[in-house]
């Protein structure tokens, strides 16, 4: 019987080789594994074999059966794969099909990013009205009437002392009027200035204002927060530089530059060959602002900062004309 088994294996191997299609394979399967096939026959014979030979023969038979099964399956898969290729010559280079989804405006995208960074640093988000009283835009922020420091804050007026806010610093006052420290908040929003429109000026743009007030808030904290922000926004290698400056509502005040993200600080057209880009205004809240909202400047200190969303977005994406944001050309919108 051992010889028969070996012969069966050999004949199976050659028949398998000769199988041309799924059909002939099936007949091979029936011949060997079928209910009346060769293996079934062997099993019948096994019952009649010598008692001591039985276990070894049984083992042999099982091995063969397994082998045949595996080989047939393998061949079957081959045929299936071949048939797919044969019957459907799919041109997989044809374009894929999908339902196009839209995109957020780049300003929204960048604003979301700014918000998320500050949220992760513990800031809350607050908003205030765009149509404001003169008081909130100027006096409360220590910007006196008819002072040259107002030149930077030319304003659209509506009626009487109602105007369109020219900066989001107005919201600082509204928040401090409502709430006692601790305060840790950012205030995004639209602002308006009657500037003639060109590639770098717009009469409407977006700002994000920040304010942190508590006992013992220091200038070093301001530096720390803004350092973290610029690194997260523009990349780990970004350097931050604080330059003394002037804003009526902060003292000491600083202009914050980052190392040019275009040339890495080597100097290029974008940074006017200085290696630095002005990105933020900041400072410690002027005690006179605290007095305006009824906080004791002896008790509380704090910092404030403000940045332009358009400017940051332009730098981030290499956009060279601010008007593109408001033109909303679909070829522009699709890129973000």
């Amino acid at each position: 019987m051992e010889n028969e088994i070996t012969n069966a294996r050999n004949s199976f191997m050659s028949e398998l080789q000769g199988a041309k299609d799924a059909e002939s394979l099936e007949s091979i399967r029936v011949k060997y594994l079928g209910r009346k096939g060769m293996m079934a026959g062997f099993m019948g014979k096994l019952a009649l074999a010598d008692k001591e030979k039985k276990p070894a023969l049984g083992k042999e038979l099982n091995k063969l059966k397994l082998y045949i099964q595996e080989e047939i399956n393998r061949k079957k898969d081959e045929f299936l794969a071949d048939r797919d290729l044969e019957s459907e010559k799919t041109d997989i280079t044809m374009p894929g099909f999908f339902r196009e989804s839209g995109r957020l405006h780049p300003l929204t995208g960048v604003l979301n990013e700014i918000n998320d960074i500050f949220i992760s640093l513990g800031f809350q988000i607050a908003e205030g009205p765009e149509i404001e009283k003169e008081f909130y835009n100027f006096e409360a922020l220590n910007i006196p009437l008819e002072h040259p420091s107002r030149d930077a804050f030319d304003t659209f007026y509506i009626k009487g002392n109602t105007l369109l806010r020219s900066h989001t610093s107005t919201v600082q006052i509204r928040i401090m009027e409502k709430k006692k420290p601790p305060i840790q908040v950012i205030m995004p929003g639209r602002v308006y200035r009657p500037d003639a429109v060109d590639a770098s000026h717009s009469f409407m743009f977006h700002q994000v204002e920040g304010l942190m007030v508590d006992k013992g808030i220091r200038f070093t904290d301001l530096k720390g927060i803004l350092n973290l922000f610029t690194k997260r926004m523009f990349g780990e290698k970004t350097m931050t530089r604080f330059r003394p400056s002037f804003f009526p509502f902060t003292e000491p005040s600083a202009e914050v530059d980052i190392s040019c993200i275009i040339c890495n600080g080597k100097g290029c057209r974008v940074c006017s060959h200085s290696g630095w880009l002005e990105i933020l205004g900041a400072g410690m809240v002027n005690p006179r602002v605290f007095e305006m909202v009824g906080y004791s400047p002896r008790k509380f200190t704090g910092f404030a900062f403000g940045m332009g969303v358009e400017r940051i977005t332009m730098l981030k994406y290499g956009i060279d004309d601010i008007r593109l944001f408001f033109e909303n050309d679909i070829r522009f919108l699709k890129q973000f």
Partner: peptide
């Protein structure tokens, strides 16, 4: 200003980050 060091203030903000509308 450059000689003034950098510190990270403790987080003092409230737990509510943004109002519902936002």
């Amino acid at each position: 200003y450059e000689k003034i060091p950098v510190t990270i203030p403790p987080i003092i903000g409230a737990t509510k980050i943004q109002d519902f509308t936002g």
